[in-house]
Design a protein around this nucleic acid. Structure first.
Lengths: 261, 261
DNA sequence: TTCGGATATTGATCCAAATCAACGAAATCA
DNA sequence: TGATTTCGTTGATTTGGATCAATATCCGAA
């Protein structure tokens, strides 16, 4: 079977018009990911040969919890939100920003996804057949090491998130969230929220109504939010209220590959 | 420096009388762990050569969050509880039962622990120098693959736990906890709780008072708890209330190596 | 541009869960 | 054995957060 035939079958399988073979311009972006940067050129080439790239509009489901991981996915442009459901309830677990992979654990173990994923913007996603990824893992030690680093980092990110949920009140979670993202503030201490408040509330495990009230409460604690503009007016006061901790919020450098919003 | 000298230094470092070089009887138990079972004999031997074993009374702190991972630890007998603290609050994150390892992620990445660990019973713990573990990872592909499997499983366990926290009420968490452990019930549907209610409450992220009330509430839903004896009187009724889900509670087989209580 | 829908805010109310307080039952120890 | 402490339960009360309802605001499409 030629690779062209394989591609054709894949096209039919996923039943979508807008599919491309790996665009040359995308390759360097992928290559620079920590997960792939140390890989043998030969392994990387063979991995990329079987891959393809797809463009999606916003609000498209990419994966559904319970499904089998046919592909390791890489967000090249746009953004993907990982969420989970149970008994009619739904919660945002994380958001993946370019350029990074998601659902690596399911791919490596070849077990069903624990989370669903949908685009939150017009997005460009690369799909690497899971079989090829596992094959690359078996043949390339550098890649194996990178997979371990990535998985360990993902694990630690969820543990930190779990501590955040267990040990803090919702307003404390909000305050620390704002501090974690203060890195992109300008010299006046302003930055854009870059996420809908509805989505943010879900990620922080609170209702949109309570998020509004939390924002109002924080106005007396060194931060003012107007629309999507966050303005840190008194970083010390905010820190005093939020009590950020490295072992929960992570050092800036350790901000994870499977990025936690 | 001879290995005897190194051992002596280690003895001084940890400042505890009750230290042994690897007891021969412990080796097979370790060897059978999924993490080590596929390892080259040679690598395994060199790993075990640098290891030692220690006995602890209950309530002893083995690791403290923020510390550097000098050793990969393996619980051989007894039990270890992983917990985390922030701003005077404390929460039980997980319990590790024999025979399994913990804090593998910190060891592999050589970054500070995110959780503290203390014995919850008289325990026997093996300590493998982190450097040796990372060395073994670099030289033994089977081991590398096993590490990935273990890390992926740990990651998924925390994700499931996070879903449990986010999507369920405290009584729902309790009900599903009881179902998850129903595997060890006898034919009458009875089993022992095997954990103090105080600790269980902390793990379920609720107060002891509320746990008591939750238990009472569940008496009308197919389960009766008397002291430490759990009696599933109506499994269907309990399941109807708890709505257990594979993607949160895991299939029995997938019960994790870094065991979630 | 206006319309219609999603999104955000505010207030009122309700509910789950934490806290406070008291007490009985085990377990631990002298 | 009795004394002391820890653990578990129950009741009363408070509080954080959810829900319900009403309005305001933003945004995208015709």
């Amino acid at each position: 079977m030629t690779s062209q035939q394989i591609l054709t079958i894949r096209l039919i399988n996923i039943n979508c018009e807008n599919v491309y073979i790996m665009r040359t311009a995308d390759i360097p972006k992928i290559r620079e990911l920590p997960l792939f940067s140390d890989m043998d050129q030969q392994t990387f080439d063979s991995l990329v040969r079987g891959a393809y790239v797809q463009n999606f509009p916003p609000q498209v489901d990419l994966i559904t919890e319970g499904d089998s991981p046919d592909f390791l996915q890489v967000v090249i442009e746009g953004g993907v939100e990982l969420f989970a459901s149970w008994d009619g309830r739904e919660t945002v677990m994380a958001t993946v920003h370019p350029v990074s992979t998601f659902i690596l654990a399911a791919t490596m173990k070849d077990v069903p996804y624990l989370m669903s994923g949908r685009t939150i913007a017009k997005s460009r996603v690369m799909l690497l057949p899971s079989r090829d990824v596992r094959l690359a893992f078996d043949t390339d030690n550098s890649f194996a090491r990178a997979v371990v680093t990535e998985l360990a980092e993902c694990y630690r990110a969820v543990v930190r998130n779990s501590k955040d949920l267990r040990l803090r009140s919702s307003v404390e979670r909000l305050a620390n969230y704002l501090i974690r993202h203060a890195g992109r503030a300008d010299r006046d201490g302003r930055y854009d929220l870059n996420i809908g408040k509805r989505r943010l509330a879900s990620y922080l495990n609170m209702t949109p109504e309570n998020l509004s009230r939390g924002i109002k409460l924080l106005q007396g604690n060194g931060v003012r939010i107007d629309g999507s503009c966050v303005h840190i007016t008194d970083a010390d006061a905010l820190a005093k209220f939020a009590k950020p901790a490295t072992l929960i919020d992570g050092p800036a450098e350790e901000m994870s590959p499977e990025q936690w919003i």
